[in-house]
Simulated scan of single mutants.
Amino acid sequence: MSHQGQDRKIDNIEFNVTDIARTKAFYGSVFGWTFTDFGPTYTEFTDGRLTGGFTTGEEVRPGGPLIILYADDLAATQQRIEAAGARIVKPVFSFPGGRRFHFVDPDGYELAVWSAN
C-alpha cells in the first residue's frame, strides 16, 4: 500500500466505543458506512471518502474521536512535535500495518501519528 503524498496529513479518525456491533448498526443504517473487521476489538469504517475506525481497545475518550495523522518518517515527526512543545503521552508502539504514537498539543488535544514504515 502506498502512502506517497500523505505525509503530515490527517489520515484516520478513531472512535473509542463500548459496543462495536451496536456502533456498526447505527452508522451503517444511518449513514450507509461499510466496515472491515480486524479482530473482536477493532473495525475499520469507510464512508466512501474517509476511512476511520471503531475500537473497544480503550475507554471512550472524553472530547471525541482520536485524529490520526500519517508521517513518512515517524521519528522525525516525533522530534518536530516535541521541539514545538507538545508532550508524548503514548510512546511508539506497533500494530498490524505499522507503528504509531500519541501526543497532546498545546491546547490539550490528544492526537496520534502513524507510519507504515
Rank of each mutant, 00 (worst) to 15 (best):
F38L: 15
G48W: 12
L69Y: 15
G53R: 11
I81T: 12
V89P: 05
F101M: 11
G48K: 09
V60T: 02
A83D: 10
T41E: 15
Y42D: 07
V89F: 06
P106G: 13
G98L: 02
V104M: 15
I88P: 13
Y70N: 08
V89T: 15
E44Q: 14
Y70C: 09
F101T: 11
D107T: 14
I67G: 02
R49L: 14
V113N: 00
A112T: 07
A84W: 09
R49S: 15
E44C: 11
G97D: 03
G52S: 01
F95I: 04
Q78F: 03
E59C: 01
A112Q: 08
T77D: 07
K90N: 10
F101L: 13
D72R: 12
P65T: 03
L111H: 13
L50F: 14
P106D: 07
A71D: 06
D105A: 08
T43I: 07
V60F: 00
W114I: 06
P96L: 03
G64C: 02
V89E: 11
Q78K: 15
F35Q: 05
T36H: 13
F101A: 13
F101E: 12
A116I: 06
D72V: 10
V92I: 15
L66N: 04
I81C: 06
T77G: 02
R61I: 04
R87E: 14
V104T: 14
D72N: 11
L69N: 07
V89C: 06
T77L: 07
V60W: 01
P62R: 05
L74H: 01
G53N: 07
R87Y: 08
G85Q: 10
F103Y: 14
A71P: 08
A75V: 13
